[in-house]
Design a protein around this nucleic acid. Sequence first.
DNA 1: CTGTTAGCGCATTCAC
DNA 2: GTGAATGCGCTAACAG
Lengths: 325, 325
Amino acid sequence: MRDVAARAGVSAMTVSRVLKDERVSAETKERVLAAVRELGYRRDQVARTLRLRGPSGMIGLVVTNLGNPFYSHLALGAEQVAEERGLRLVLGNTGGQVRRERELMEDLAARRVDGIIVVPAGTSHSHLDAASLGGTPVVFASRPPAGTEADTVLVDDFGGARAATAQLLTEGHRAVGFLGNPPALFTGAERFRGYWAAHEEHDLTPREEWIRRGPQDIRAAEAAALEILSGDDPPTALFCTNNRITLGAYRAVRHLGTDTALAGFDDFEMADLLDVPVTVVSYDAEEVGRQAARLLLDRIEQPPGTPQGPPRRTVVPISVVRYGT
Amino acid sequence: MRDVAARAGVSAMTVSRVLKDERVSAETKERVLAAVRELGYRRDQVARTLRLRGPSGMIGLVVTNLGNPFYSHLALGAEQVAEERGLRLVLGNTGGQVRRERELMEDLAARRVDGIIVVPAGTSHSHLDAASLGGTPVVFASRPPAGTEADTVLVDDFGGARAATAQLLTEGHRAVGFLGNPPALFTGAERFRGYWAAHEEHDLTPREEWIRRGPQDIRAAEAAALEILSGDDPPTALFCTNNRITLGAYRAVRHLGTDTALAGFDDFEMADLLDVPVTVVSYDAEEVGRQAARLLLDRIEQPPGTPQGPPRRTVVPISVVRYGT
DNA sequence: CTGTTAGCGCATTCAC
DNA sequence: GTGAATGCGCTAACAG
């Protein structure tokens, strides 16, 4: 900046003003801009952030597994909103490890990110509290905070699971199995609740033999589905809590050649091409990211000193789509 | 830091030393660490980066579309390697717009990222040159630089397309259509070259009517495939340049009920469950990100003053997988 | 409209 | 082993 100033025959302060587009004579401005171009000068964001003692222009995004399309779409949505404000996204992948999560949050706070969106990993989230992070605002996505309070964006897990299960029941199925995430996961618990609620509303009680709350990947889901469907008196339909599991179940159904109906959380490409009827809970993963970013920006753009409002919570709606015959 | 120093009854300098684990008496160290804990002190990365005049501990990743699984896996791979070195990833999504790309690169350089991995958007990349970015090292991923030189990681586009096409020809097909990206895209051009080369090696020349070099998404690909397959003397197989297009082609084949064989770049879930034979070019997208990050780290960790070696180029291998009957 | 002074939070250099 | 001065690059606040 000094170099630019020297070349333009002005003080550093004037250069700073030109770059900020403050009141400077047109002529001086021209000279300074010329010098900037000639020297290929670029204002240093790091020094700027330090001096301004304020926003770094970056927001953190901490997810459990970027390889999962849900999270990459969430990231995309958050990026879109951040981009509109000229904010950059700093990414962290925890792999579901609480320790990594804690380190990441600390590191992001130390980098003075303006706020953090996090898909929390563990079951206790006191280390994700804004206060313990030097006041960095935090928004939870996909799973709600436990042991702290914060803005949150959720998917309608309960409603989606209930509606999809209800769809099967309405079609006449009376024996609907459940294949899905462990109950320790918020989404797993909610989706199971939905599955159960739909049954209650039809005055039915699911049979324990038809329920598997463990499988996490396609292979495990396939194995579990094979087991359920090979039992005596197998269910005529299966509800699956995510698309990996639905795929596993489909493999099993296809393998056995039964005409088991499937319903599952998460839409997927090709769902309409399977040769068994599939009901799917569809929602906009990008929208989860967008809403999270918006909640965060609302906090960030709050003038300092303003009393903080209570935590807000939004829910991204789902729709049930029925494919196949 | 001053607060911590005061509380521990030492100077700020000593606190700095403790945090860097330099020679400090064990007793002092203990007192300082206690003060750090009590005050919840966290060393400011921004000030640190400014003072050290060096590494910010962040690397930039600029991709065209994070919603595409290829890029999100690339990001995941890059994150893995960065994570090992304690580096954070700063993400930018260009949507394929050169203008956004230029702005992003500028911004990242201004933030003093240690280096940038970029999937370039346009056809001329002089604005992506390290020199024009204040010396920030740049690595190209998936597409090579044009109009500048830089380290690059590519997928074996040519080899993959050739091998997959050859597979079809070896199975006896003599009429193989081509469905794919426009030739302006590096990958599109390379994959077309591969398709063509396989034919030459079999002393064949593909017919123009079987070639569509435009479709970019599933719908367009489906339409194009329907067109080709509905013509007189349609091909008995199709080579598709990416998984979106393969899916579109599959829809068309399924719709028409022909027994057209398919081959395509990119593996995808369920490829083995389709009811037509599918040959797929499989590769590790995460590995592209990992290798890009490694090339970048090699540059970054080069002690300043060391003469820069020539640009390096690595190619991620592919394998051909045949599914179905 | 423009320049000068001072300091953001930290770490390097030199003293002690 | 520890402390005091100095400056990284930039910009508020206050002159002029």
